[in-house]
Amino acid sequence: MINDEIMDYIGILAKLELSAEEKESTKKDMERMLAYFDKLNELDTTGIEPVSHITKVQNVFREDMVTKGDEHEKTLQNAPREKDNMFMVPKIFG
């Protein structure tokens, strides 16, 4: 059902790099779960709208205002790497 190619593709989407062992066990678990998900096909859902949100609340807008002030020092304390008041990331361009 799920071949290695699909597993690699999902790994790219999920940004996860599983070890060979993890990949094998995850594949097995996924196949079992998906086979179970197929149970939903017993139900005829023709004409039924998919519901993503149950509440009747519609778009909520508010002014885009700064309310908490400048917290960059506290925020940057959580960053794994920072430099000159900025998040530091690996080199993106060669």
Binding site: L16, T26, M30, L34, I48
Partner: peptide, 28 residues
């Protein structure tokens, strides 16, 4: 990791309708 992988799969092109949208219909 197991749930992230499964979630990424049901949302991926080609499977989105069959799994994710189907589940949202049954939820209704």
């Amino acid at each position: 990791k197991r749930r992230i992988m499964l979630g990424a799969f049901v949302l991926s092109a080609g499977y989105y309708d069959a799994y994710y949208l189907k589940a949202l219909r049954v939820k209704s």
